[in-house]
Design a protein around this nucleic acid. Structure first.
Lengths: 337, 337
DNA sequence: CTGAAAGCGCTAACAC
DNA sequence: GTGTTAGCGCTTTCAG
């Protein structure tokens, strides 16, 4: 281990030190089978002695590969995306790949990511989670040359994996109908002008409403409550909803986060969960089980695996036609319903 | 906008199309002042027509710059790190830089990040948040050539920014002593064998304990409760603590997350917050204000700004000596104490 | 203001 | 099994 080296040592220095050619050093480093064990050992020792680290930029430039992909998503602080990150990480292992996480947390980031040489595109492939590349970019040239797959959005331009959210809504409706009672929905208003909307909440709501209509019931406008995606707003809305219906009530929350707010407020109000107040959420986040929340489980592991498989196939075979894979959510009945 | 181009168009194609030399195209693209307005316009039009996108890898290889840095942190799902990300993002703006987020969520990631050509090191600089590069790597050669700064850890090898956590603990102790009562602490056991420990919780605890001792009080071992970093564990521990002391009690939670659990359990048990049960947390997360939690505020914006400044200075002037900056936390008294 | 040419560090043909 | 050589696409001297 040398002290501060006066200049960065490159592959030529190593070659000279080991008495071989740069190509041999390269072969030894990249585990080519044609290099003899003795030479390899010799070269590796020179590398050790000189403290050589291959130039990252040159390596990538020449080989054209980074062995990593970028995961572009709206936020990272939700349990769903954390599970997705985990499942993608795991699925990448067998391909010897890595994922960088790029949360699109602000307009500023969105603006910077218009630049084709922004960091996320310095990888071999892209996964867009709940984000539509068709809307994200002024021109798709931005991500030119980097294959992409999309989660949660049906797009004709990219491989995509979606969950049948309408079915999820329908399953919730069907289940809650087991006990007739005033039926409320708690959802969020997605702003479709922004590129940050995937439409999943609308789909869940639509599935629920359609199923209610099919059963001759429907959802009255005053029974539909929308909230912001923050704890205080969700709590306030939940309180309002529970005050509106004093007696037995059924509630469909379009995500578990909203359901949590409902559970807390119901408890504070002393209303019996699963009896007087019945709740079905969506996502099956980790807390859901502890809290006994009935909810719709998304097959997150399968989503991650499929996204990775589609992307890796496309890396290997660029000319592939666009593929679309759909998964069904599954109703998990627990104590709140 | 051409259809699917048979082959990727490069700077030579653009030059030929525009009737100039590659160097001129490069100059036009990189806003060199020496190129005439007419030529620039001409070149830009060719670029448009051909749908040219500069090769990311070649650009970086040649220029040696990515205009981005990597933020390496333990998790992303805590409010503190989200605020840190925001403040770093903001601070980077004036430098025309960008940050990639690399959460070290698993042993697998840690293992992959031993590779010097892993994605995080394909940037111009590194910020380690609550993570010690000295322990993270088998050899620091892994990050060779990429300047780094560290948050939360005093290390002789890197520029670092720390918060005086011991002072925070002492301030909490001093404040809680205003009303004499049995005094409990809720903390976490940091495992120092792993590279995932920064030591901040120990520091907070140490500061608290030292201050109590100095006041002739001390913290009895049975008054120190440790928990896991999960909601159910925190809730269970909180319940235990409140059951242990039926009457007036003072509690120092070494982070707001634990304090939330205490608040919820105190409410469920019908104990009066700020009266019978007094709580001081640490971090001043966003919820803290809504909940009226007394807590120690970390100057997150200043931390982010300072980290960025130190890193940018080092990028400009590689030979700089190691610098250390310390910030004091500030006690925010609200309703829980 | 623009052209010509060198070269960044590495990998991969092609020889031998 | 190793050496030789060309070249990836861009930026940056140096001329003119």
């Amino acid at each position: 281990m040398a002290a501060v080296p006066s200049k960065k040592v490159n592959i030529k220095d190593v070659a000279r030190h080991a008495g071989v050619q740069p190509s041999t050093v390269s072969r030894a480093l990249n585990d080519h089978p044609e290099v003899s064990a003795v030479t390899r050992a010799h070269v590796l020792r020179s590398i050790q002695e000189l403290g050589y680290v291959p130039d990252r930029a040159a390596k990538r430039f020449r080989s054209g590969k980074t062995h990593s992909i970028s995961l572009i998503l709206p936020i990272t602080s939700s349990a769903f995306y954390n599970r997705l990150i985990d499942s993608i990480d795991e699925a990448l292992e067998i391909y010897d790949y890595d994922a960088g996480i790029f949360p699109l947390l602000s307009e500023r980031r969105l603006a910077r990511y218009q630049d084709p040489s922004a960091l996320p595109y310095h990888t071999d492939g892209l996964v867009f989670a709940s984000l539509n590349p068709d809307h994200l970019y002024r021109s798709l040239l931005t991500i030119q040359g980097v294959p992409a797959v999309v989660l949660d959005i049906r797009t004709p331009n990219f491989d995509h994996v979606v969950v049948n959210n309408e079915l999820g809504g329908a399953l919730a409706a069907q289940h809650l109908r087991l006990r007739p009672a005033p039926t409320l929905v708690m959802s969020v208003e997605e702003r479709f002008e922004t590129p940050f909307a995937s439409g999943v909440f609308q789909e869940r709501l639509r599935g629920f409403t359609a199923a209610q209509h099919a059963a001759g019931l429907g959802v009255a406008p005053e029974h539909l409550f929308t909230t912001e995606f923050t704890l205080p707003s969700a709590r306030a809305t939940a309180r309002q909803m529970l005050q509106r219906c004093g007696g037995p009530v059924n509630i469909f929350a379009t995500c578990d986060f909203f359901a949590y707010a409902l559970i807390e407020e119901a408890r504070l109000a002393g209303r019996s969960l699963g009896g007087e107040v019945r709740i079905v959420g969506f996502d099956d986040e980790p807390h859901a089980q502890e809290l006994g929340l009935s909810t719709l489980r998304q097959p997150v592991e399968a989503l991650g695996q499929t996204l990775v498989r589609l992307l890796m196939e496309r890396l290997e075979t660029p000319g592939l036609p666009i593929r679309s894979v759909e998964f069904d959510p599954v109703l998990q009945v627990r104590r709140t319903s």
